[in-house]
Design a protein around this nucleic acid. Sequence first.
DNA 1: TTCACTATCTTGTAATGCAAGATACTTAAA
DNA 2: TTTAAGTATCTTGCATTACAAGATAGTGAA
Lengths: 108, 108
Amino acid sequence: MNAQFKKGVLDMCVMALLGFRDRYGYELVHEISERFEISEGSIYPLLRRLLTEGYVTTYLQESDEGPARKYYSLTKQGIMARDELISEWRDFSAAVSDLIGEMTNAEG
Amino acid sequence: MNAQFKKGVLDMCVMALLGFRDRYGYELVHEISERFEISEGSIYPLLRRLLTEGYVTTYLQESDEGPARKYYSLTKQGIMARDELISEWRDFSAAVSDLIGEMTNAEG
DNA sequence: TTCACTATCTTGTAATGCAAGATACTTAAA
DNA sequence: TTTAAGTATCTTGCATTACAAGATAGTGAA
């Protein structure tokens, strides 16, 4: 999988998942991995960025299965950023898919 | 428009356009600009990369309207790279759109 | 001669995914 | 006891790439 495709999209996916319910980093890695390849080295720095930008807040919660989990919760700013990203993604991915469709259908 | 979304996608779009017919840099900038925002500072270095990787060849052609145009032509390797990228893009963008759809429809 | 348009190219910066590795808790097998 | 597997977080440094900004240069019209 082309790593470049994921640039910017990962933020959006994480925020979309957090919009549904709070989640912790490890959970996000596994959740997204069901859709496409992703590594922990991408998610943890990304979550830190979202925190710095005020798009998420965090709280610790103990677990019976291992170390405490750090849950992430989407803020109002996060919701707005997410919605903006999703809107841009829809326009952009549609434009790209159109272009590809036109160029490959008409190919000589 | 989120610049991050374009990472990797621009290569694919340029190669898709070149798969239809040979084009020169300035032309590509304007062609792609009809679909989404793009600048010359992205296209010319990108074309140089494609050349280095053997995905395109070039030839000069004089013009009545200004300086000579450098046309880019897709090689067999370029065609294979393009097809691979397009296949990955289709899978990836579908996965992302699905995830977003599921998370925003079911939102509380 | 000045401007607009056409056309190519370079430099430096910012952003971000990821490999690799460190740390630490729990449980179960050897 | 020791070892390993699974769960969980975090950091460092690297590679890639879009783009702003600016330089250069040809053509044709005002």
